[in-house]
Amino acid sequence: MGLSGLLVLPQAFGAIYLGETFCSYISINNSSNFEVRDVVIKAEIQTERQRILLLDTSKSPVESIRAGGRYDFIVEHDVKELGAHTLVCTALYNDGDGERKYLPQFFKFMVANPLSVRTKVRVVKESTFLEACIENHTKTSLYMDQVEFEPAQHWSATILKADDHPSESNALTREIFKPPILIRSGGGIHNYLYQLRLSSHGSAQMKVEGSNVLGKLQITWRTNLGEPGRLQTQQILGSPITRKEIELQVVDVPSVTVLERPFLIHLNLTNQTDRKMGPFKVSLSQSDTQEEKVVMVDGLQTLALQQVEAFSSTNFHLDLIATKVGVQKITGITVFDTGEEKTYDPLPDLEIFVDSD
């Protein structure tokens, strides 16, 4: 045949990894003693899911390749799928007798995962913390250009570092001349920590209610020879966000109170919905146990509050009195919505110190 498969790729291409660019130099050799003409060349990558065309000269065939000559080309492909791949190269040409001939060649290779990313999500008060551990599975060290967390809508993210309080000039210098983070071959790891916050409250919190999508990581790196790689994780999930309709918070509690003398605690009631709520009744509910209450309401047992507008709040105070000295607990402060006839979870217990004088 006019074109032969003398140039055969090795059985193993070497390490080919997801997120990198597969690049192959291909040479079509005319090993005959006659010229071949009108050569149509195709090269494509085949995977279990798809076929990607890399080169097709159908519309402008190579006019001729002389006897002993060759035609060279380079194909590139951004590897985005794990598993078995096949590089298919074909040539359609006229031989010395003008007969149309067809030559296919197949080169198989496997694509492996260069990195593993393990994440943990922790919630502390109003903040969500994301830990990401990146492990290098390749046989070469990787220089991480960027490990950036792209938060989902209504979230913001800040990367936390050990030296998070540098001087302004040093911080600017480090931002411009960032030393690369090296993750060594064969199981080297590096950890990243991000602090996530809801970018705004109120309506934004309503829109993400019930959703547990936090965002995804964009990872870029370079090998020892400077070859780039890029991966994007799937969406990282946290705990589903539940929105409280009503939030009751403590504004101020006296540090010391006097036995059997009235004192005030200041509270704030926030409506976190997009509709008007209330009126409300605030009271100290009875405990499930038979223990006598040490701190009680001084005066009317129920405090009435007016309606609260959407995404608004109101401040109020409760008159209380303590009947026993020492460290005591204020328990069971409860809000009841008279409009919807709904009782909300009580305020967490508060501790006060009661003096005898």
Rank of each mutant, 00 (worst) to 15 (best):
L115I: 05
A322N: 07
S200E: 11
D298C: 08
H137Y: 09
N191S: 13
Y344I: 06
T338D: 00
S24F: 14
Y194W: 13
S60P: 06
Q286M: 11
A171P: 04
I333D: 03
S185K: 03
D357T: 06
N136H: 01
N94M: 08
L305N: 02
F106Q: 11
E135W: 03
V121A: 04
N136T: 06
H137D: 00
F13D: 10
S141C: 10
I246C: 05
T86V: 13
Q328L: 04
F149K: 00
G2E: 02
V308A: 00
I159L: 06
E168Q: 11
G19S: 12
Q234S: 14
F109P: 01
V308T: 02
L264G: 07
E227F: 12
S287H: 10
Y344A: 05
G98A: 01
S27W: 15
T223E: 06
V117N: 02
L55Y: 02
P348E: 09
I74V: 15
F149I: 03
N136Y: 09
N33Y: 08
K108W: 00
I219Q: 08
S199Q: 05
N191V: 12
R49H: 15
H85V: 06
I181M: 13
E309G: 07
Q272S: 09
T323D: 12
G2Q: 02
D163K: 10
A310S: 11
G186D: 15
V295A: 07
L350F: 05
L87Y: 03
S169E: 13
V213C: 12
A162Q: 14
S116E: 11
G326C: 05
S356L: 08
W221G: 03
Q290N: 13
D38Q: 11
E292S: 07
C89A: 08
Q232L: 11
C23A: 15
M1H: 13
V308R: 04
N30P: 11
Q290R: 13
R230S: 15
A322M: 00
Q50T: 13
V250R: 02
K120H: 05
S313Y: 09
Y143C: 08
Y71C: 11
S156M: 07
N136V: 06
Q235S: 14
T119M: 03
S24H: 15
E76L: 10
P240Y: 07
I176G: 01
L303V: 08
G339C: 05
I16E: 12
R261W: 03
E48R: 15
E168L: 11
L54H: 08
F109E: 04
V36I: 12
T158I: 06
K120C: 03
Q232M: 13
P61K: 01
I26W: 12
T314F: 10
E99G: 07
S127T: 08
A91P: 05
V8G: 14
T338L: 01
H266V: 10
I28T: 13
T21A: 10
D357I: 06
P166A: 09
L182D: 09
A132N: 02
N94R: 07
E81N: 09
Q307A: 06
A162E: 15
Q105A: 12
S287D: 09
S169A: 14
A132H: 00
S285C: 11
T323A: 14
V39R: 01
T257N: 09
